[in-house]
């Protein structure tokens, strides 16, 4: 019951605060929500957030699936554990540090630019830091590891007899994959995608460090309201909107998420 106290109470407090107004005028209003929808730069933050999150989710899955498949099916059994631990090792660097590392890699004179210039592929360093590209890269890096884990677990759970059955019925490896393995791991992919979506859309650190202030995402907007303006009511309203988006995403994918539980 302790959780309820410390978890539910903040939400109720937040919901109430989101209805009050910043200048201390009494009464409950929806002014903060109106303010959000009336201000294009605020709604833009939500749009940015959704775009970045969707790109990240799709790219991460596309990169992670083949990788997980290689780990699960191409690598000899006894090396798999080691290969997997290695693949998710950087997962355990702290969030802040990981983002900073990407900044190093993509900085104007950083490793990537340096290498490209040395190879003569580009004449001048390109601006990589503080763009959406960097934010996406940072996110994808994290979620490729996460998704590799979930998809790997999924592939390992598949009973080999499915594959044998498909082969017995005359399907080649490609058809087996497309018609048997892929559909069977689909629920796992959806769970991973949902996890990615939820974690990415609520993250402040990665966009703040890597994206800079050129393009605001929702969590940055929330922090801005707290940090610079001390506007808790608006920040609460924004948080609640963000939660609403996550809830909608959950409901939209619940159909597939449920299959997994069954």
């Amino acid at each position: 019951m302790w959780t309820l106290a410390f978890f539910a109470a903040p939400f109720i407090a937040m919901a109430v605060v989101s209805l009050t107004s910043h200048d201390g005028g009494g009464g409950l209003t929806f002014a903060n929500y109106q303010q959000f929808f009336a201000n294009p730069s605020y709604t833009q933050a939500l749009v940015n957030s959704l775009e970045v999150t969707l790109i990240v989710t799709v790219v991460s899955i596309l990169l992670a699936y083949p990788f997980a498949w290689i780990l699960a099916e191409q690598i000899p059994e006894r090396w798999q554990r080691l290969a997997l631990i290695l693949a998710v090792l950087p997962f355990w660097t702290s969030y802040v540090v990981r983002s900073y590392s990407w900044l190093l890699v993509l900085a104007e004179k950083g490793v990537v630019n340096n290498t490209l210039v040395q190879l003569g592929l580009i004449a001048e360093p390109i601006q990589l830091a503080n763009t959406r590209f960097t934010t996406v890269t940072g996110f994808v890096h994290f979620f490729v590891m996460l998704l590799t884990l979930t998809i790997f677990a999924n592939l390992k759970q598949l009973s080999p007899s499915y594959r044998k059955a498909a082969a017995d019925l005359g399907a080649g490896p490609v058809r087996t994959f497309l018609h048997v393995v892929l559909p069977l791991t689909f629920p796992g992919i959806m769970v991973g995608a949902f996890l990615t979506f939820v974690l990415a859309i609520g993250d402040y650190i990665t966009p703040q460090i890597l994206g800079g202030n050129n393009e605001l995402l929702m969590p940055q907007l929330i922090m801005l309201q707290i940090g610079r303006r001390g506007d808790f009511p608006l920040a609460s309203a924004l948080s609640i909107l963000l939660m609403a988006v996550v809830t909608v995403a959950y409901l939209a994918s619940a159909r597939w998420l449920k299959i997994e539980r069954a």
């Binding site: 407090a13 605060v17 939820v198 609520g202 996550v246």
Partner: peptide
């Protein structure tokens, strides 16, 4: 379900909620 719910909510929002609560 309620106990495990915080797993799905962004840390930012949990932090935000606690901040508002502690302030209050």
């Amino acid at each position: 379900g309620l106990i495990t719910l915080p797993l799905t909510v962004s840390y930012l929002i949990i932090g935000m909620g606690l901040l508002v609560l502690f302030n209050a």
